[in-house]
Design a binder for these strands. Structure first.
Length: 558
RNA sequence: UGUCUGAUGGUGUAACUGGCAACACGUCUGGUUUUGGUCCAGAAGAGUCCAGGUUCGAGCCCUGGUCGGACAACCA
């Protein structure tokens, strides 16, 4: 951590940090306050992690604070379940907020702001229907036209707005609109709707209100009420900034400022909450926390660590241009961490029997280091016996040139055990290999090898009678297209049909029996795995977080 | 025919604010290795969207284009 901080000092500031740095140096602020403003209508994903990393990270870096504020102005899509998951995810990522607020905390204040605007002649109640408003809005190249209700008197507007609040009108029959400019080149300034009628139960305010403020009438004011200094959001809000500033200026309240950065995208996946919800609802995945999902909860279940995710956000960086981050950077970040921290274990995915013909003891207990990258990690016992399993793909009858694995007449090292020489094999009537015969070199025992032999390959293995059966779930990318944004048609057409491969019975060394879900493992030569929540004491299930880097398969493809 | 916004190796970020384009991922070589992992050493790969201009000097400034994205939800 300290090293990371030192690195950060040397690192150039991103453009947001530069703005803040300047504001602080010029004395514009004594300290800064940011906010992370999720809408509780879905689960957080890796894109949110980037925003969290930025908002919380930048505040911490400059000695400021960050509020968590739920943007809950639309009761029909928002739920408490989402509030809870969002809070859990932020905490899990390692951040803590100075205050927990809700836009709905400010409904009274916002209502008063609306009254103020009406009183100033800056807002009016409109009777137009949604269709009519849309029709009069104009287009980006054509100006809109004024509503016939635009010139109502202040008193009439005040009365009508109060009646709206009292529930005297039907949903959709009236709105409160800002009186700005129907000819503005910025569509958002063409008398935007400030309040609409919704007879919906709100997750926090219940049925107290039947009118709810729109985003544009809630966000900037909420920032202002909290004295947020730097309100950081994504690029699509750039046109909203004019309205954000207009509200603050007309209301003459604390001037928070909005800054925009490009949202994070990752190749081979989707990031929109709408699409993720669709994947969940249509059962393309098992839920929001399906390990293939780019959600924080999905990644957590898959075995990603908060450190790896934050590291990824840090390396991906922040800019104003739209971008597509390579998923291989994310994978690099997990491997980097897991390589240093995870215990090594041996698991045979697709077994073939190996008989050590010259081993006649019942068993031998060997020692294997838990993690060669960490000297303090200790050792675990590994039983060795006459009958072993190795990976079927680690043996070839007619091996090609650079096959450093088992083949007749060839010697290989069994990891943490002995060097063995393959002497022959047996097949069934169909020609399938049923048994491989080897002799072992007793003097070649790991750690005390006096054999003087040199071998090219080392294999993982497991003693058949000691092995425990486990279920493995191997995940591939959820989509076949690198960039879904540029694809034609329904994004679901690009779902990878083989994104989940289940190996219902794999054979693991007994040390894995007491695995806990807090642990991460490297299954030797296979990848990083973690215990899944579907595990039962007698039926352990492991999720593959990511494979190891593999250069041999590339070699084969040549 | 609009407004806003952006454009630097395959990808993502830099470039001390005008001084011969750097870092990371990825790719490829070679070495070490009881994981074809890690680690170590090295290489290839952009001349900065285009055309002009200012300047001794431009990725950074100016002008004009080109291309991409956003903008017409009672969503956020």
């Amino acid at each position: 951590m300290d090293a990371a901080l030192n690195n950060e000092k040397a690192k150039p500031l991103n453009f947001i940090e530069e703005i803040i740095d300047n504001d602080l140096k010029q004395g514009k602020y004594q300290s800064i306050l940011t906010r992370f403003p999720p809408e509780p209508n879905g689960y957080l994903h890796i894109g949110h992690a980037s925003s969290i990393w930025l908002n919380f990270g930048v505040a911490k870096k400059f000695g400021g604070k960050t509020n968590l504020r739920f943007d809950d102005t639309n009761p029909v899509t928002e739920e408490t379940e989402y509030v809870e998951s969002i809070k859990a995810d932020i905490k899990w990522l390692g951040y803590s907020w100075a205050n927990e607020f809700y836009a709905s905390d400010y409904f009274d204040q916002l209502y008063n702001y609306a009254i103020q605007l009406i009183s100033q002649g800056d807002a009016y109640v409109d009777d137009l229907t949604p269709d009519e408003i849309a029709a009069q809005k104009g287009t980006p190249t054509e100006p809109g036209i004024n509503s016939p209700f635009r010139s109502r008197t202040i008193d009439e507007n005040l009365q009508l707005f109060e009646a709206m609040k009292a529930g005297n009108f039907q949903e959709g029959s009236k709105t409160l609109r800002a009186k700005i400019d129907m000819a503005s080149v910025n569509m958002l300034l063409r008398d935007p709707i400030l309040y609409r009628i919704k007879f919906a139960h709100h997750h926090r305010t219940g049925d107290t209100w039947c009118i709810y403020p729109m985003y544009d009438f809630a966000h900037g004011q909420s920032d202002s009420i909290e004295n947020i200094t730097h309100s950081i959001c994504t690029l699509e809000f750039i046109p909203h900034r004019a309205l954000y500033d207009w509200c603050i200026q007309k209301l003459n309240i604390y001037p928070s400022h909005q800054y925009e950065f490009a949202r994070l995208n990752v190749s081979y996946t989707v990031m929109s909450k709408r699409k993720l919800l669709q994947l969940v609802n249509e059962k393309h995945v098992s839920g929001w926390d399906d390990p293939r999902m780019p959600t924080i909860s999905g990644m957590r279940r898959r075995g990603y660590t908060p450190q790896a995710i934050n590291e990824f956000c840090d390396r991906a960086g922040i800019a104003k241009r739209e971008k597509l981050n390579d998923i291989s950077l994310l994978e690099f970040c997990v491997r980097e961490e897991l390589n240093k921290s995870s215990f090594r274990r041996m698991v045979v995915f697709d077994p073939v029997k190996v008989i050590i013909t010259n081993f006649n003891e019942s068993e031998l207990l060997l020692e294997g280091e838990n993690n060669p990258e960490d000297e303090t990690s200790g050792f675990r016992a590994i039983p060795f016996s006459k009958e072993l399993f190795i990976e079927r793909e680690d043996f070839m009858e007619n091996p090609p040139k650079k096959f450093f694995r088992m083949a007749i007449g060839q010697s290989v090292r069994l990891k943490s055990a002995f060097i063995v020489t393959c002497t022959g094999l047996e097949k069934d009537v169909n020609g399938n290999i049923t048994e491989i015969h080897c002799t072992y070199i007793p003097e070649s025992k790991s750690g005390s090898d006096t054999s003087g032999m040199k071998v090219q390959g080392t294999l993982h293995w497991v003693s058949s009678k000691h092995a425990i059966k486990v279920e493995l779930r191997e995940y591939e990318r959820l989509f076949l297209s690198e960039n879904l944004a540029t694809e034609e048609g329904d994004f679901k057409e690009y779902i990878n049909p083989e994104s989940l491969k289940i190996i219902s019975t794999a054979y693991a060394e007994p040390a894995l029996e007491n695995a806990t879900d807090a642990q991460r493992f490297q299954f030797l030569r296979k990848g990083y795995f973690c215990l899944d929540k579907d595990s039962q004491p007698a039926h352990l299930v492991f999720n593959r977080t990511v494979t190891l880097k593999e250069s041999f398969s590339k070699e084969v493809k040549k």
